[in-house]
């Protein structure tokens, strides 16, 4: 029973031969596969439905019959959605905010975690406690005071205004601190004896051997920055500066009839697909990062 321990290898068939009798097969299917397929379908079907609907015309949607497949896969709804809101521009905004925001957050997390683990300083426990406690503070509670501050500084409808308040990083620091503490002390000591300063120890030893953990933090940040909603919703009013989720809201204001779901689903696909692709490619890192004590929404 303990032949396979980690989820990473769990989907490979067990190496030992297994008697494939008929009762065994039936039992495997009913207790193993049926619930598994059901659970998967409950999640996947709504997303498949979204993609199918994104190709349906408004008259197809209004027939009230349950036609599964659209009559054609012409991307009419996609071009219509891109006409109603400046989708290219929104995509660029989301890309800039996500790339800049998560890059800075990763660097800040590396520096803070390195300092907390390897640099002498009094009251380090207090400092770490203050960083950790931020995980319990919901960002929504901070919206109004941050709004007043950022608008006062002239940050409404600017990239820096969208990015800056979200840069403080408790989650990444927490995760990387755990990783750095698990590194063998002998490596760091050897570098110190060789005369390497903190900067060289951090950039040439600690960071290179922690690449998987840093990738995890980066990917989790990317997903969150891309989906971030409340803050960009309040700080941006100019359609040219909106991120994709905010632009999607703008689209619902003009497309609010029952027949406009084709256009809305096309727009949703464009917002959701990049994250789905990133997730499909790196799901092991993302799942591991998000389930290691993350308290963010």
């Amino acid at each position: 029973m303990t032949a396979v321990l980690t989820p990473a290898t769990a989907d490979q068939p067990p190496p030992r031969p297994r008697p494939l009798s008929r009762t065994n097969l039936v039992a495997t299917i009913t207790t193993g596969y049926v619930p598994l397929v059901l659970a998967t379908l409950v999640v996947v079907l709504p997303l498949v439905w979204m993609v199918l609907a994104s190709f349906k015309t408004s008259s197809e949607l209004l027939t009230q019959r349950l036609d599964v497949l659209p009559s054609s896969f012409a991307p009419t709804n996609y071009t219509t959605a891109a006409d109603r809101v400046p989708f290219g521009r929104l995509f660029l905004n989301s890309l800039v905010v996500t790339a800049v925001g998560s890059a800075i957050k990763v660097v800040l997390a590396i520096m803070t975690a390195y300092a907390l683990v390897f640099v002498r300083f009094p009251f380090k426990k207090v400092v770490f406690g203050l960083v950790l406690a931020t995980l319990m503070v919901p960002p929504q509670v901070s919206v109004v005071p941050n709004y007043v501050l950022i608008v006062g500084l002239g940050g409404a409808n600017t990239y820096w205004g969208i990015i800056l308040p979200g840069l403080a990083t408790g989650f990444g620091t927490f995760l990387l601190r755990q990783q750095f503490m698990s590194l063998p002390a002998s490596i760091i000591e050897a570098a110190e004896l060789d005369g390497a300063g903190h900067w060289r120890r951090m950039t040439q030893i600690v960071v290179p051997i922690s690449t998987p953990a840093i990738a995890t933090v980066a990917l989790v940040n990317i997903v969150f920055e891309w989906n971030e909603y409340l803050w960009p919703l309040v700080i941006v009013t100019d359609p040219d500066m909106m991120t994709l989720p905010v632009g999607l809201t703008l689209l619902t204001n003009s497309e609010n009839g029952a027949d406009s779901y084709g256009i809305l689903m096309a727009a949703t696909v464009m917002v959701v697909l990049p994250v789905l692709l990133v997730f499909a490619a790196f799901q092991r890192y993302i799942v591991a990062g998000l389930t290691q004590g993350a308290v963010k929404d």
């Binding site: 997903v223 989906n227 909603y229 989720p245 999607l248 809201t249 619902t252 959701v272 997730f279």
Partner: peptide
Amino acid sequence: VLSGVGVGLV
């Protein structure tokens, strides 16, 4: 990991 706005619309 999907956008809450997107999920809500679906």
